[in-house]
């Protein structure tokens, strides 16, 4: 579903992402974690086709994001960390906009169902700037799912959501994966995403330091206990001076 191959991104001489390689298969929920400035958002933006890679490549559903950007983007949904909506458009008008952008025909039933699933059906005629941050986040999620993307990327999706909102989001993620979709999820709330993800990609300083399922990660860090949490794995992996040798999927 997603293949990131030797991806590098350089901003004016500063390397934000350095030869990053990983893959996500259909039905997988992968957590992209790392300290601030690790390159998570940049990686997601390159996959979403917002930024161009400096080197390497990204394929989404078999489409190269540089050579076939339109086809690749059609398969992706990207929910950014800051849910920027059009302040004077209603929730329903946002869905109308997305339906137009992604050329989704007969979207109305799915739109209503998404709003109901995300518990914002009663706010469909509210203007975006009348909504709380959590509500705006839910609108962004509804917009992202409207066109039935194959790969769903969420950058820090939990900030602003209440416990019910978090549960609703995780339910939506699980449903999407169960239907054969892939999810790339970035968050600093490790204990929260630990439950939702089947595999993790840990970045530090723009480089891949560790990748695998929780069991595989524990196995690669022999100093850790067998039941070490993702948080302990994260600290062990990112505080190491040299990235441990890892195989990539």
């Amino acid at each position: 579903m997603l293949l990131v191959r030797e991806l590098s991104k350089v901003y004016g001489g500063r390397v934000a992402v350095d030869r990053l390689t990983f893959r996500i298969r259909p039905g997988e929920v992968v957590g992209l974690v790392g300290p601030n400035g690790a390159g998570k958002t940049t990686t997601m933006r390159v996959i979403a086709g917002i930024l161009a890679p400096s080197a390497g490549g990204v394929e989404v559903d078999g489409h190269d994001v540089v050579r076939s950007p339109i086809e690749a983007k059609r398969a992706v949904a990207f929910v950014a960390d800051d849910p920027a909506l059009f302040p004077q458009l209603t929730v329903w008008e946002h869905l109308e906009l997305v339906a137009g952008l992604y050329r989704v025909a007969g979207w109305e039933d799915r739109g209503r169902s998404l709003l109901a699933d995300l518990q914002i059906a009663d706010r469909r005629d509210s203007l975006a700037d009348e909504l709380s941050r959590g509500m705006r986040q839910k609108v962004a999620v509804a917009c992202a799912l409207l066109h039935r993307p194959k790969l769903w990327m969420l950058d820090e999706p939990l900030s602003g959501l209440d416990p019910r909102g978090i549960r609703t989001l995780f339910d939506a993620i699980a449903r999407h994966a169960a239907e054969g979709g892939a999810v790339l999820l970035s968050s600093h709330l490790l204990s929260q995403i630990e439950r939702a993800c089947s595999r993790f990609v840990i970045l530090s300083g723009g480089r891949l330091v560790l990748e695998g399922s929780p069991d595989e990660l524990r196995a690669r860090l022999p100093d850790l206990r067998g039941d070490a949490s993702l948080e302990e794995i994260f600290f062990q992996a990112t505080e190491a001076r040299e990235p441990p040798t890892t195989g990539t999927a």
């Binding site: 086709g49 950014a80 906009l97 952008l101």
Partner: peptide, 10 residues
Amino acid sequence: AEVAFLFPAP
């Protein structure tokens, strides 16, 4: 909002 909706869109 234009960046969020239009840039990742096909």
